[in-house]
Design a protein around this nucleic acid. Structure first.
Lengths: 221, 221
DNA sequence: ACATGTTAGTGTAGACTATACACCATGTCA
DNA sequence: TGACATGGTGTATAGTCTACACTAACATGT
């Protein structure tokens, strides 16, 4: 039992976990077992421990659901309307995380019953105000593509330019000219050729590239 | 006495209140009366009430310190390191606010003993992690000048282009070419001539402009 | 009334950036 | 060896950004 002179809200972290699967932007949702919103899908999240920072709390939630660590994670926004949880006052510090397509294969969560990856138009009526959180995360993601190397976080350690372009197209939901994209991304000088080729399928093999500073998200322009 | 099954952190809002005074970017600080950090300057802030949203809490803090309402206020970031307050776990949702130079004259706070406006290089050793909060607020402010009409929030209802330019120069800390600035800002089509002139001092009077949508911050480009 | 001082207000040329657009290259497989 | 599929490349144009200097209009003092 913990007592205070003044009322204290509960504080949680919720994480919007994005990844690219099947040529779609998807996010990880969890089916709620208990009330409220029992049976509804919700963002993974939970209470912040007394001795951990908010970042650490979000990272822990991420690890608990995916088994992954070392992924990109950034604070998004804090949601604290008094009525957002019917039980008690709960303030949630929302984060978003990006999982690359080689991390996703390591991701343990997928086989669990109550966990799933959903495309942005494959879910409806999330629990709490989670739809608002997801919408804001998607906006932030799209905005950051324009002025950072955020999209590289979705790529495996070696990737083709076509694969990278398709990540941009999926998130921004618009087609990009191949030649202009390549000029642009190479001019950034944030990726380099590995010297290897992909050689998949009945066609010309593609050069493989890697990030010069793997894992780093850099602001550009 | 309020009791919970699990430990709950205290949640506060702190507000970085910016204004332009004496051709400098200044912010409002409050001298702490009690421990910890007694006598140190700190951001205005306080506990979130159980029945108010985070935005409302921040707006209330702002009003309590300045007497002002209807000013621009936006959530900045949430700071929650376990050791940031020596008394108990305190998570603060930081906001920043912009006060225009006609609002500032209405601002009651200035005559109080323990309240003051400080230029960005006029203070040192703020209480808690408030220097970090201020630094992030300043970064956000400067970044937003590039892609929004945020700077207009510092302007009185009617203003000259020279005055507007000087706000940009003060915040960005760099000189801007007069002709290029005017071309740029007029091309935005977010301000219009009032038809009036300023006529101050021994020189040619300047045209006065106003925002087309007063109070609105718009994303540009 | 005229000279002085101070800020307001304006345009153009060149560099650079963004965009639109189509064909050949290189591999697999039948 | 031909069909198919994706990889890879350049150029011309429009648009944007940058640098740069002089005249206009007022107040003031002589």
């Amino acid at each position: 039992m913990y007592s205070y002179d003044y009322p204290h809200p509960a504080v949680t972290t919720d994480v919007v976990i994005f990844s690219i699967r099947d040529n779609q932007l998807k996010l990880l949702l969890i089916k709620r077992g208990g009330n409220p919103y029992q049976g509804k899908w919700a963002l993974p999240g939970g209470f912040v421990n007394p001795d951990e920072s908010l970042d650490d709390g979000a990272r822990r939630e991420l690890r608990e659901e995916t088994g992954l660590s070392g992924v990109f994670l950034e604070q998004l926004y804090t949601f604290g309307n008094p009525e957002r949880d019917p039980r008690e006052r709960v303030i949630t510090v929302a984060y978003y995380a990006l999982i690359s397509s080689d991390q996703i294969s390591l991701c343990a969560a997928t086989d669990a019953e109550a966990v799933g990856w959903f495309a942005m138009d494959e879910f409806s009526e999330l629990a709490f105000d989670h739809e608002k959180i997801v919408a804001m995360a998607h906006e932030r993601l799209a905005a950051k593509l324009d002025y950072s190397t955020l999209a590289f976080q979705f790529m495996p350690s070696e990737f083709t330019l076509t694969a990278l372009q398709s990540v941009y197209e999926i998130i921004l939901q618009e087609e990009i000219d191949k030649r202009n994209f390549r000029k642009w991304v190479l001019a950034l000088e944030k990726i380099e050729e590995t010297g290897e080729q992909s050689r998949e399928g009945a066609h010309r093999p593609a050069k493989l590239y890697r990030q010069i500073k793997p894992g780093k998200v850099e602001i550009i322009k």
